[in-house]
Amino acid sequence: MTKVTMTVNGKTVSGDVEGRTLLASFLRDDQGLTGTHIGCDTSQCGACVVHVDGVAVKSCTMLAAEADGATVDTIEGQANADGSLNVIQQAFQDHHGLQCGFCTPGMVMSAAALLKENPKPSEQEIREYLEGNICRCTGYHNIVKAIMAASGQDVTAIAAE
């Protein structure tokens, strides 16, 4: 066991981990942050996306030991300070960008990373950026729409409610 310390959602946390402990497992099992989900074994589905030192990573494909000393942000830390939904979360609700909710934490974290890099992405840029986030429920239409809306773009012309 090795001791790791990291800043998770602004709070310093530490724990003893095995070499093989994944960052996703550390967050879920040691820290009780179960909003980060595990949906595949091959680094494809993106349900586990968190930010490590400000960039999106798949926490099921990173060892907890590698995150020692890092700043980690998860879905649980995304809401505004007063507990209200942040602009991306609110857009997902307003535009029905989620159904079962399982892929949603990863989607929100990827969307946040995208908007940091590219504040006004086009539909195509959003679709390409979400290559590593699989959703089985929505057909992505409303996810794309929500991210466009979160970036301040007018989505009224996009079909359907």
């Binding site: 879920r28 099992d29 942050l33 179960t34 909003g35 980060t36 989900h37 595990i38 998860t74 879905i75 649980e76 995304q78 809401a79 939904l85 979360q89 997902f92 609700q93 307003d94 029905h96 989620l98 079962c100 909710g101 399982f102 949603t104 934490p105 929100v108 409610e161």
Partner: peptide, 23 residues
Amino acid sequence: AATVRREDVRFLTGTGEYTDDIT
């Protein structure tokens, strides 16, 4: 009415409770 979904808030904040989240 196209009411937005109330269940979304827990899913969007990582506080949904799926079976594997339960210990």
